[in-house]
C-alpha cells in the first residue's frame, strides 16, 4: 500500500467573529488522505474552507476537533515542516528585500548550508524566470512576479510535499503554462502536491485526484480520470457544479 503523506481525520474548525464573539464553523469533519507522489486539488467556491484546511494542515491554525498528520507527524511539527514547501494565496512578501535576498532568507530559515543555498537559489531564479529582476526590491514587482518568487521560495528546501494556495493566481497565460511545467517536473520527481485552485482547467490538467469543498464539507472526491471516464460528466466543471449543488451522481 502506498504511503499516506497527508491524513486529515474528522477535521473541524470554528473561528470566533471578533466583535460579536460569535463562533462560526468554517470546516466540518473533513476526512482526506493524500498518497505519496499524488497531486491532489482541493476546489470549491469562495469561503468554502479551502485556505482554512490548508492552514490546519500546516499548523498555522489548530483544529477545534479532529487531527491532521503530515509525513506521519502532527501538523506544525518542525521535522515535518522542514520537508514541505508552502505558497500562500496572494503572496505579499517583504517589499524592502530584493528577490534574491528573500530567497536567501527562506533558505536560512531552513538552515540550508551556504553553498547549497546559493546553487539552489540560482537554479530556482532561472526556473521561475526572474533572472532580470532578482536584484530588484520586491516593492517594484508585479503580482505575477511575486507569485513566481513565492513558488521559488516554496521549493528552496527541495520539499517532499508542497502546499500551494491558488498557485495560478495573478499569472498571465504564459506564467500559468510555466507553473504547469514546474508542477509536471515536480510530479516526475515524486513530490506530493496539494493545492487549492479556482481554475478548473488547470486542476483537470495537473491533478490525479480532486476533492470538492462546499460550506466547510468535502462533498465529492474522485480521481480525475474517473470523472469523465464513465460518461457521467462531460468535464470537471460539470462535476464541480453538481457537487456544490449536492447532485454528484455515484460512479
Amino acid at each position: 500500500m502506498a504511503d499516506v503523506v497527508i491524513q486529515a481525520t474528522n477535521l473541524s474548525k470554528e473561528l470566533t467573529v471578533s466583535l460579536s464573539r460569535r463562533k462560526v464553523r468554517i470546516l466540518s469533519g473533513l476526512n482526506l488522505s493524500v498518497l505519496k507522489g499524488e497531486t491532489y486539488g482541493l476546489i470549491g467556491p469562495n469561503g468554502a474552507g479551502k485556505t482554512t484546511s490548508l492552514k490546519l494542515m500546516l499548523g498555522l491554525l489548530r483544529p477545534s476537533e479532529g487531527s491532521v498528520e503530515i509525513l506521519g507527524e502532527p501538523a506544525g511539527h518542525k521535522g515535518a515542516l522542514a520537508r514541505l514547501g508552502y505558497l500562500p494565496e496572494n503572496p505579499y512578501f517583504y517589499s524592502h528585500l530584493t528577490g534574491r535576498e528573500f530567497l536567501d532568507f527562506a533558505g536560512e530559515l531552513f538552515g540550508i548550508p551556504a553553498k547549497e543555498k546559493r546553487e539552489r537559489m540560482a537554479e530556482l531564479i532561472a526556473t521561475v524566470k526572474l533572472e532580470a529582476a532578482a536584484d530588484t526590491q520586491m516593492r517594484k514587482y508585479s503580482k505575477g512576479m511575486l507569485q513566481r518568487l513565492g513558488i521559488a521560495q516554496s521549493l528552496i528546501n527541495r520539499p517532499e510535499v508542497i502546499f500551494w494556495d491558488e498557485p495560478m493566481s495573478g499569472l498571465d497565460p504564459i506564467g500559468r503554462r510555466d507553473v504547469r511545467e514546474i508542477l509536471a517536473r515536480l510530479k516526475e520527481t515524486g513530490t506530493t502536491i496539494f493545492f487549492n485552485s479556482h481554475l478548473l482547467p488547470d486542476v483537470n490538467d495537473i491533478c490525479d485526484r480532486v476533492g470538492v469543498l462546499n460550506n466547510g464539507k468535502l462533498v465529492a472526491e474522485d480521481l480525475i480520470k474517473n470523472i469523465s471516464a464513465d460518461g457521467n460528466y462531460k468535464d470537471l466543471e460539470e462535476y464541480f457544479l453538481d457537487a456544490v449543488s449536492d447532485k454528484v451522481r455515484p460512479a
Binding site: 522542514a82 500562500p88 530559515l109 538552515g111 502546499f163
Partner: peptide, 14 residues
Amino acid sequence: ERRTIYIIFTKPVS
C-alpha cells in the same frame, strides 16, 4: 498584516 508570518511559521521556526 502582510501575511509574511505564514512564510516564517510554515518553515521549521519556533
